[in-house]
Design a binder for these strands. Structure first.
Lengths: 201, 201
DNA sequence: CCAAATTCTTATCTTTTGTTAACGTTCTGA
DNA sequence: TCAGAACGTTAACAAAAGATAAGAATTTGG
């Protein structure tokens, strides 16, 4: 995808939260960067400050922790979703997880410094504050649901819910990543699937 | 606590995120409400839209779901912490959980409508957009950590971490609420505690 | 194209958790 | 003040999950 198309995808996606007129868009563009990462390249790493927030315009990324040498996958971002190691990005402290591309992936990114400049911009500052707020609120809601699912549901219930609602993850992601995402081991997910098979059969 | 003291506590707490000068504060005050709830009163309920965000200036509240007639506690807010059923508040859809006072509690609240008016206010709109953003970002980070703990840690590890870091919850909250908070049953937490006792003894 | 790596399932065994119930203690509200 | 409710622990059993390993199928990368 060429740079212009990528930028336009970004504009479209931002418009879901705050529509920008042409003048505002022109003010924003200089802050944006378009980058392409090959498969299995890191966008964020532990012990490093995550300096960018990215919109995935093509491809996908995976969030994971490494514990005792094992990768534990926590999240995914597909096309038209944002990705950043939020805590590290916001606090300017080293992060604790990887964000890695699952395939060749194109990103439109904003650096932390660019973000702060934008917030203080005369023309678009207020609108972008709102944008930042709405993005944070959006992901806050996602996490609220997710924490609720960990507290109120069994792994099997979480998987069933994922079957009902979530398409993309189940289609495009290896099952052992999904297991981590649900908070269980791959072996355990395999057993849950068999259990469900037997019941519905 | 009298109304003026409560409002000043609110101002102080907001100042952590965005300091307000006197003119700005005077513009904000008319939107604020101070209310007192007796112990075990609901601030939010399932099937009802949560219309307010609250700062707890005195007392404490507990978030919980009800599943199969059982209460499952997910969170607490103590003094100088905000409380709202975020998803319901933001999406204007009925919530799925209770928020209930644990003791006689005093709150400074903002209604959803007030919030929207404030965001569009000429004088303080931009600053309050930032405030809303920073609050959402703050709680987003809390949730990011919490989800990571569910994915990467065992219940025992989560409890040990809580012992290290969290004071207030452990001091002021019945143990079976803490168990829910950790994603396990009260019986299981009791066993974990015994296990830890034996090791450290 | 083929060897190596990855993925998923299955089995076995161990550990942990859930469930239910009992018991003593503490708290609470009428 | 006093009876009932709530709380924490423990026990016994069932269910589920973790750990490890083996094996088949698939994918991948050189």
């Amino acid at each position: 995808m060429d740079t212009l198309t990528a930028l336009n995808k970004f504009r479209e996606h931002v418009a879901i939260f705050v529509p920008l007129n042409d003048a505002e868009w022109r003010a924003l563009v200089p802050y944006l960067e378009v980058s392409t990462l090959k498969k299995k390249k890191n966008f964020a790493e532990p012990h490093k400050i995550c300096n960018h927030i990215a919109l995935v315009v093509k491809g996908s990324v995976r969030f994971f922790h490494v514990k005792d040498g094992e990768e534990i996958t926590g999240y995914f971002s597909f096309e038209n979703e944002f990705a950043t190691s939020y805590k590290s990005f916001l606090t300017r402290e080293p992060g604790i997880n990887y964000i890695q591309t699952l395939e060749d992936t194109q990103l439109v990114t904003l650096s932390y410094n660019a973000m702060q400049q934008i917030y203080d911009d005369q023309l678009i500052g207020k609108k972008m504050e709102r944008f930042g707020r709405l993005i944070a609120e959006h992901y806050l809601i996602c996490y609220e649901d997710r924490v609720a699912s960990f507290i109120t549901q069994t792994p099997e219930e979480r998987y069933n819910k994922l079957l009902e609602t979530g398409g993309e993850v189940l289609q495009r992601i290896p099952q052992h990543y999904v297991a981590n995402f649900l908070g269980i081991t791959p072996v355990s997910l395999s057993r849950i699937r068999r259990r469900i098979m037997k019941i519905s059969a």
